[in-house]
Structure formats: C-alpha cells, structure tokens
Amino acid sequence: MSQWLDWAKRLQALAQAGLTFTKDEFDRERYVELQRIATEMFERQSDLALEEVTKLTHVDGYPTPKLDVRGVVFRDDAILLVKERSDGLWTLPGGFCEVGLSPAQNIIKEIEEEAGYDVVPVRLLALFDMHHHDHPPLSQHYYKLFIECELIGGEAQVSHETSEVAFFTRDNLPPLSTARNTQEQLYMCFEARWQEDWITLFD
C-alpha cells in the first residue's frame, strides 16, 4: 500500500475517534482539522472531487473496518460470477453487510439480487483483511468474508448492479474486478470446493 494512503487512513481514523468521544470543544476543533487534512490527502491522490471524497471519509462513530460478504456458489466444477455494471469486470456476488442482517442473511440477499439464484449458506471459507491482499488502494479499511453456499433454486437474472451472470471453471476465469476479489482468492475457493475438512482461513 502507498505510504501516503496509510497515513491518510490513520489520520482519518484518529480524527473520527476523537470527534466521537471528545467533550472538549478545543479538541474538537483539532480533530476537525485532522479530518480536513486527511480528506485533502485522499482528494489529491484520487480522481474524485473533494465533495465526493468527504462523503466517503467523514463517517460518524468510532472507526472500525467495514464488512463485505462474497458468495461462493458452485455448479459442478464451475463457480458463479457476476459482471459489474460499474467497471465491466467479474466478481463473486456480494457487497457490504446491511445493519439488521447476519452475514448469512446478507449473502442470501446479495446472491438473489445480483444473480437471481436461491442459496443456503453452508460454511465460512475465509475472513480476509483487504490490506493483506492484492487489491487496489482503498480509502476505507475492509474485511471480506467468503461464504460457500449451496445452490437450491432460482435462475440467472441480472440486476441494476450486474449485466451478466455465468459460471466459470478454474482455468477459464474472466477479467476480474480486483477491488472486489482477486484471482488468488478465487483459486482458494476452488481449492476448498472438495475439502470437507476445510479449515477457515483468516488474516
């Protein structure tokens, strides 16, 4: 990860924590200034306008990693992927966990919405920190859950987020949306496919 991005994230997290807990107005002013500096750092190094960066980085409450779930669904020896409208690249179906839903409930919802299939979650394959994997730099800190699911019904159906739905074998993977999943992570899913004694991986 670029050093500037690490510094900006740390500054933003310190500012967010301080604004959450401080009762001193002078300290609040200092934390607001720290937050402004971090936001400008993100803005200078991205293609986003300052207003867009502010929306991404100014979050209320104590700073914690966001949680992203990805559904691992196999049909025979092929894995389910969806093509994202946002970048035209392929990914495991999934997204951010919504408040009020468990990770299992979230992945059922995401797969049905993005791919049209009905599934039952069966096991957690991995819990990864995106900082430790070959993803592009991101302004926020994310944890990623890979949940294997059994296909029980439904049919392929695109959504406002996805333009194609298909199954791919290990040796015929399409161009991947690496902000969402990497080739190594998909290889991990294939490796776990036939291992009944698979032990959950974590960083």
Rank of each mutant, 00 (worst) to 15 (best):
L176W: 02
K66P: 03
E196F: 05
Q183R: 13
Q3T: 12
D24S: 04
L80H: 12
F168V: 04
A104K: 14
E33K: 14
A78E: 07
H160V: 14
K144V: 05
V53K: 09
M188G: 03
V122D: 02
A8G: 05
E29A: 07
E161H: 09
H132C: 13
G18T: 01
L125K: 00
I107P: 03
G94P: 11
F128S: 03
R44Q: 13
L5A: 02
I111H: 04
G153Y: 08
D68K: 05
E84Y: 12
Y31F: 15
S86N: 12
R123N: 01
R28P: 06
V165N: 01
L145C: 10
K9C: 02
A13R: 05
P93Y: 11
D203M: 06
R28T: 06
E155P: 07
A126N: 01
W90K: 07
L138C: 15
E114N: 03
I152H: 08
W4V: 14
F202W: 13
A115R: 06
P121C: 00
H135E: 08
P174M: 08
K83F: 05
Q35S: 14
E33H: 09
L14D: 00
K23E: 04
A8D: 04
D76R: 09
L19K: 01
A115D: 06
D171R: 15
Q140N: 12
E43R: 09
T169S: 09
A156S: 11
L50T: 11
L5E: 10
A104H: 15
T64R: 09
R30T: 14
R123T: 00
T91H: 10
T169F: 15
H131D: 04
C189Y: 01
M188I: 03
W194C: 13
E25F: 08
A166D: 07
F190V: 04
F168T: 03
V59G: 06
L14P: 02
T22E: 00
D87F: 11
E33I: 06
N181V: 11
I199R: 04
D171A: 08
C97S: 10
P65M: 11
E164R: 06
Q12D: 04
F190Y: 02
T178C: 03
E161P: 06
H133P: 04
K23G: 03
P121N: 01
E51D: 14
R85W: 06
S139Y: 10
L151G: 09
D118L: 08
Y142I: 13
Q3R: 09
R123S: 05
L145F: 07
R180A: 08
S2Q: 13
P136Y: 05
